[in-house]
Design a binder for these strands. Sequence first.
DNA 1: GCAATAGTGTCTTTAAGACATTATGGG
DNA 2: CCCATAATGTCTTAAAGACACTATTGC
Lengths: 249, 249
Amino acid sequence: MTGLPIRAHNTSGYEAPSGLTAEPVVFALVHGELTVLLVRRVHEPFRGMWGLPGGFVGYGEAPEETAQRKLTEKTGVGQIYLEQLKTYADPGRDPRGWIAAIAYLALIPAHSLQGYASGEGGPLSDAGAWWPVASPPELVFDHDAMIRDGVDRLRGKLWYSNIAVGLLPHEFTMPEARHVYEEISGMQYEPSNFRRELIASGLVQRTGGRVMGKSGRPADCYAFIDSTPSWSERRSRIPARKTEKTGQQ
Amino acid sequence: MTGLPIRAHNTSGYEAPSGLTAEPVVFALVHGELTVLLVRRVHEPFRGMWGLPGGFVGYGEAPEETAQRKLTEKTGVGQIYLEQLKTYADPGRDPRGWIAAIAYLALIPAHSLQGYASGEGGPLSDAGAWWPVASPPELVFDHDAMIRDGVDRLRGKLWYSNIAVGLLPHEFTMPEARHVYEEISGMQYEPSNFRRELIASGLVQRTGGRVMGKSGRPADCYAFIDSTPSWSERRSRIPARKTEKTGQQ
DNA sequence: GCAATAGTGTCTTTAAGACATTATGGG
DNA sequence: CCCATAATGTCTTAAAGACACTATTGC
């Protein structure tokens, strides 16, 4: 907690924050468990404590670029799914002063992780580690809230979008997909019904491949039709549609 | 477009935005039509043009407070539903320089509007007006995107939350509620099925009152059980639940 | 063949969509 | 009584949940 709070203002006389950060909340599946990427802070305040791998947005930089850049620095993967989560800008959230933080949700597919994560909380490039979202360490600032919001978003969109694309490898089997969905949602799915639902969503397609597990019948391979996460076309059967009157949909 | 872009930075040497604004996207129903509150800008740039009733966040102020304050100044209503939508901070979005904007979704119940809106786009306190979201005027900055995002959020949450609380009066009839839902979603609902769905959601309750229209049978009055918008308890029947194994829900 | 796991089929239950019927006001 | 509108009931269709059964591997 070195440094006193600082005040900035612009030439119009308006007060301004003294910094804007982008904070990627990066999820990945490590050994089937939903984990979040955390790094040890190298600067004060809270040096050495765990936090999200974010950083300050530079002049002329889009915050999303910042998030992408920081993420690539730490994980080596680039061009991955990023979605704005929420902005945290309440006074007092950062002891250095008035600093606003834009949190982003990011997902890393399992196959991209080879060589980076080596087990439970295994270290990666720069003092970073994958921590289970179920049992994170003590976190700096309000990063715990950011992770919570990230998990909530992931859960909320799971069945309405193909957001799971971001976590699954390009090709996957139904049991694999099921475990991912179960891990995220915290629910148990009946295998045959899960299959039916996922296929009915229209998001996945058989690839023709098959994969053998330790034992038992080999599993068919599937892939998401759209590789970029987006909202599903799935007609959620929510409201009782009236016998069509106008041209409205 | 007076004034040159300005650069600010904090004493740590990090570059910082030269301002942070809160922009409430305020929706209300005027004569059954979904409208958004817009004001004419009194300052440069784009003086005289229409924009959201936002303003700069002051030092020590939470952005949500700013939004609430600005909103109260313009409409006279306070303590209404506010929900963070998205932050816009890309370079070039504001000709004055690097200014980040946090957009908020706000809803004003029909009964609070008496005396403020007087018809289609009628003026209120300070050069403000309710504009139909279907046909807004030309807007400053990226305020059109903010309104679009607001409408999307409203639509998305309509059946999963009691967000409509914010737009409906305390007591309302089924036909009233139906019209609101139809206006927001752009769909037509079959009256008896709409009733069944809304009651099944567990969000509303009969109050005992009845209201007579111009003719026909009087309508029963209902009210939302929770007056603060929140997520619904409604079991959306999305995934095929497995015969319960663990204690997980 | 047996264990283990994946895939297919189908029966039951329940919710959604359609629509007829009844109820309650004003002329 | 007739018109207009709201409320109720119910029939049909389709999706979700449960679970039996078949298929394909290794041992």
